[in-house]
């Protein structure tokens, strides 16, 4: 049996799951490992034990959830990798974006606002799913950049994607308001 260094496991999400520190990730494998580990540490497995064991289970399960969430989501994973690499993406300082990207974003935002004002739930719903498909390509570029060590390019892509993900949230909020 391999003995894992628990301190490392607590500090690095990739080593917790025994996965290589890369943006390219076998998500099926990650999910399996997540389930296997939760099956051991989850508070439901320790509900009949002493309070100390229950507390310990909660802490471990919390940690494993956080690790899974970070690695499962490609944008979070990318930010985590950049953080591990000590690369500051300069969220506060570096706000420059390519002009074409900004124009496209502004147009999308207008479309969302129009659909929202018109109360068009179906249009917003369709837009949400279309956008989701479209940014798939950018996530592919991000993976290449990170796994070839091009952190500067990865950082720029992360900033763009954060912008786009925020638009998704706005569509979601508009939909929730309209449906309420």
């Amino acid at each position: 049996m391999t003995i894992f260094d628990l301190e490392t496991v607590k500090q690095d999400y990739f080593s917790l799951f025994g996965l290589p520190r890369r943006q390219e990730l076998d998500s099926v494998r990650l999910e399996e490992l997540y389930r296997d580990i939760q099956a051991k540490v989850h508070p439901d497995r320790h509900a009949h034990l002493s309070d100390s064991e229950k507390r310990m289970a909660m802490q471990w399960a919390t940690h494993v959830n956080e690790a899974y969430l970070t690695l499962k989501d490609p944008l979070r994973r990318a930010r985590y990798l950049l953080q591990l690499a000590g690369h500051d993406i300069g969220l506060e300082s570096n706000t420059a974006m390519p002009a074409g990207f900004l124009i496209a974003q502004m147009e999308l935002r207008e479309t969302v606002a129009e659909a929202k004002d018109a109360g068009d739930v179906d249009a917003l719903d369709a837009l949400h799913h279309r956008l989701r498909q479209e940014i798939g390509g950018e996530y592919a570029s991000l993976r290449d950049a990170l796994d070839t060590g091009d952190f500067a390019r990865a950082g720029a892509l992360v900033r763009q994607l954060m912008f786009q993900e925020k638009l998704f949230q706005e569509i979601d909020e508009a939909l929730s308001v309209l449906e309420a």
Partner: peptide, 18 residues
């Protein structure tokens, strides 16, 4: 038993990983 509980949990995690 607090320390014992911690070791047991660590052992569980190690087994899950292995």
């Amino acid at each position: 038993t607090a320390e014992f509980a911690a070791r047991r949990m660590n052992q569980s995690v190690q087994r899950a990983l292995a």
